[in-house]
Design a protein around this nucleic acid. Structure first.
Length: 409
RNA sequence: GCCGAGGUGGGGUAGCCUGGUAAUCCUAUGGCCCUGUGGAGGCCACGACGCGGGUUCGAAUCUCGCCCUCGGCCCCA
């Protein structure tokens, strides 16, 4: 036993990696609540859940986003010499899944996902190196109906957890029309400046003034119509009106990405700091990059962690029971606990505590009821149900306890 | 990668400027007082100076480097 690994005593505590979090019970309760809301809505709208691997070929992400993103990826070479990366987002993996598995499935294909992603960036408020995204992709339609459905779904999901964020809707067609005669580097820079709202620098670029006029216009739609036909966008907006989705037309959404094809949208929360975007999406084409038939898609990703930072939730709690036996009733109490567990959240002492200490524990741990079992209860086959809030107690059998606790009858 | 503020038991803190007692207090946790009735109280236990170097007789305190956290910049697929 001289191996230091086996010595008992303190050593330097291991800590979690930078930018990661331990999620404690109270947080997990909130997260599961939000997740189930999102999941329920996606299912109600006819979307099906998919899951993809936590790591993918590095190329999947460089094809989509360019070599520069390697700096911000957790990438590695496996023992077979393959270049892999932990996924930094889920749109590309889902597009890859579509190409590999679902190309022959009837369109439209409606998918949703919830998973953790990894980016090697400097952590700050609302930005972690492991974070969660909830998203949906609608594959197979380029019609306004598809864009409107996805935006409406985004709005419903956020609203379902009390985030009535106004969705900003824009179109890349307009910006691209403005910069169509400008060289690639300059237009890419312009897109970035638009995204940042850096109008001073934007004004110095060719086309910049026009873009600023558009973004700042009182009636941006009218302004945009002088630049390019807006049939598609106008149709999407009309459908959103029909679906009772409130939105703001905002041509400053650039989302910098080349694969977006037209409609783009984002949502923000004023409850957050610098990282205030909770949702982003748009219509795009990726499948052909990954070796599939070209297919139009629309989708969005929700920054799950940011949603949780932005909302203040009261998660409904179910009543908790503690079965409290005297020493000679412990075996009998185990049977009782098992029966109660058919319907109720039930704990039983594993610390060898006295009745008094068990009740003290029940109190400090926030239990709602104690089911006290001793000689008397074993003889009468009734149990003492004690309401720990009111202090009232009564003799009931298991069925009656379940009814009392669930329905208060 | 850059700027700023921080880091003392599980949580919250005093001490730091002005180096010197066994590092303060609250809380949480486990036990006992009390093996059939909780919330109070008393007693006991547990447990910390982020890491490493330097200065010094002596460092939580001064100093340097690093790590980490928070706010922001950059970036944001």
């Amino acid at each position: 036993m001289s191996d230091p690994k086996w010595t008992v005593g303190k050593s330097t505590p291991l800590t979690r990696p930078r930018g990661t979090r331990d999620l404690l019970p109270s947080e997990m309760r909130q997260r599961r609540f939000v997740e189930s809301r999102f999941r329920d809505i996606a299912e109600l709208w006819g979307y099906c859940e998919v899951a993809t691997p936590a790591f993918e070929p590095l190329e999947l992400f460089t094809l989509k986003s360019g070599e520069a993103i390697v700096d911000e990826l957790y990438s590695f070479t496996d023992k077979g010499g393959r270049s892999l990366a932990l996924r930094p987002e889920l749109t590309a993996p889902v597009a890859r899944l579509y190409v590999n598995e679902l190309q022959a499935t009837p369109k439209p294909i409606k998918l949703y996902y919830f998973g953790d992603c990894f980016r090697y960036e400097r952590p700050q408020s609302g930005r972690y190196r492991q974070f969660w995204q909830f998203g949906i992709e609608l594959i197979g339609s380029s019609l306004p109906e598809a864009d409107a459905e996805v935006i409406a779904l985004a709005q419903r999901m956020l609203a379902s957890v009390g985030l009535d964020a106004n969705i900003h809707v824009g179109s890349l067609d307009v910006l691209r029309a403005i910069f169509c005669d400008v060289d690639y580097e300059t237009s890419a820079l312009a897109m970035r400046l638009i995204d940042k709202g850096d109008f001073d620098r934007l004004a110095e670029l060719p086309g910049g003034g026009r873009a600023i006029d558009l973004i700042k216009a009182k009636d941006p739609l009218n302004e945009a119509q002088n630049i390019v036909a807006l049939d598609h966008l106008l149709c999407v907006l009309e459908l959103l009106d029909t679906l009772s989705v409130s939105y703001t037309v905002d041509f400053s959404i650039a989302r910098g990405l080349e694969y977006y094809t037209g409609i783009v949208f984002e949502a923000y929360s004023c409850a957050l700091g610098a990282q205030n975007q909770v949702l982003g999406g748009g219509s795009y084409r990726l499948a052909h990059l990954f070796g599939g038939e070209d297919v139009p898609s629309t989708g969005f990703g929700i920054g799950f962690d940011r949603v949780l930072d932005a909302v203040n939730l009261q998660v409904p709690e179910v009543p908790r029971l503690l079965v409290v036996p005297t020493n000679d009733a412990r075996i009998y109490a185990l049977h009782v606990a098992n029966e109660l567990r058919s319907r109720l959240k039930t704990d039983i002492d594993v610390m060898g505590r006295t009745v008094r200490a068990q009740l003290a524990y029940a109190n400090s741990a926030g239990f709602d009821y104690a089911v006290i079992i001793g000689k008397n209860e074993m003889q009468t086959s009734k149990l003492t149900l004690r309401n720990l809030r009111s202090g009232e107690q009564e003799l009931l059998d298991v069925k009656q306890i379940i009814n009392r606790v669930l329905n208060n009858v």
